[in-house]
Design a protein around this nucleic acid. Structure first.
Lengths: 226, 226
DNA sequence: AGTCGTATAATAGTAATACTATCAAATTGT
DNA sequence: ACAATTTGATAGTATTACTATTATACGACT
């Protein structure tokens, strides 16, 4: 399996962490730490200790810890879009493309050897628990202007495109898809912490299948022409 | 119009803010300040200055600023459920009840004179921008055990009940309703800050009507029997 | 082999935050 | 009039999110 690199917006970092050993270590260990400590409990000081470096060195890669989070989340959405792109090559039926996309979105995430220093399983938990914090800030508009949310927007646009192909008259394709993208993770959070808000139950080994069924029905019931 | 009081879970506060002048001032001014500064920019010190009191006094009402946010959000969900309850009295058709509930959820929020010291318009903006932060923490499970999220869960259960009445075979009533409750606010946030994720546009004066249409179609397309 | 430039380490320091503690003054109820 | 409670005033602490400075290590180039 070839080792790959996702190309991310340059505004996400000060120095590209994918290019140096220290940078990759920052990414790798920050994923582990944010997963365990939560974003609020995570600090550059703790990270520096863990990687035997210093706060100042970490700050040379990321302006602040918010930008680091945005970077990780952006990486994740880019990864998902790459997976969807890869899996829908040569498929022309938009229903089938949409089906594949939803299955990838809702599937349990596992280590992808194409990206050796990224723990995708931990990262997906970070997305579930922390991704909303990337844009729920007073600086959303500036961050958006810099293109920091391009990954999520691009994924949404792509899937909304499939929807439009299936039913060009449906008027809420972007709203429906952004709602579905959010729900895909939110429902897993609810299942783990606020189970009365969802039918996906924690113990159920089919949680991911159930989620897939729920999301698929939600989308297709809205766009299939009658 | 009678002045009312919503009864909230005692664990939300140390001293009930509705009972004293200082407490009501804390609520009233914290809503204004969080709306303007955002939750991160808001501090008890700034609040104390604004109400001519002290940090220590504020801490006598709320354990910390997180609990204050949870309190405000809980108040909001209780208020909405009260409004829905009030507006669906004596209505037996579950479709009609569901329709009313969605309209209330998606409607532009305006000052409710029944609750003199609450600025519901500002509070609804806080819900849009900050409510997810109430549960996206490492202490969700403890907070949930204390019943701090009862308001949201109760509202979800009620509306899921309408769904079940309409179609008892639909298997994702809670998931669908929690998704819809989130979408109701999220779509407004997207319209304001990440407009490519939604069809509701900022300039459109029908944004609230459009949102209502979107949410209604999303729900009814999923549960109407074929 | 030497030196040049850059990346990193080591250390120190700062303003702000999220509290906690103490005691005096004001207000309230009886 | 007195006790109890609430609030105000003030001080203090550990931690956070940075910034700044200088020294050291490292590889790249001539």
């Amino acid at each position: 399996m070839a080792s790959l690199q996702l190309i991310l917006n340059e505004k996400l970092y000060l120095r590209d962490p994918q290019e140096t050993a220290l940078g990759r270590k920052i990414i790798q260990e920050s994923i582990e730490m944010i997963d365990v400590l939560g974003f609020e409990g995570f600090t550059f000081k703790k990270l520096a200790q863990r990687i035997n470096s210093t706060e100042a060195s970490v700050y040379r890669y990321f302006e602040n810890k918010h930008k680091l989070l945005v970077y990780l989340i952006a990486w994740y959405w880019n990864w998902l879009e790459y997976k969807i792109e890869y899996s829908t090559q040569n498929i022309t039926d938009p229903c089938q493309k949409l089906d594949i996309a939803i299955r990838i979105l809702a599937a349990k995430k596992e280590y992808d050897p194409s990206f050796p220093y990224i723990n995708e399983e931990a990262l997906s938990r970070i997305v579930i628990a922390e991704s909303d914090k990337t844009y729920l800030t007073k600086q959303v508009d500036e961050d958006n202007k810099e293109g920091l949310f391009k990954g999520f927007k691009s994924l949404c646009r792509r899937i909304a495109g499939y929807v439009k192909e299936i039913n060009s008259e449906y008027e809420f394709s972007h709203s429906l898809v952004s709602t579905m993208l959010q729900a895909a993770h939110q429902q897993l959070f609810f299942a783990a912490h606020l189970p009365s808000l969802t039918e996906l139950s924690k113990e159920d080994r089919n949680m991911y299948d159930l989620n897939t069924r729920f999301l698929k029905s939600m989308i297709f019931n809205n766009i299939v022409k009658t």
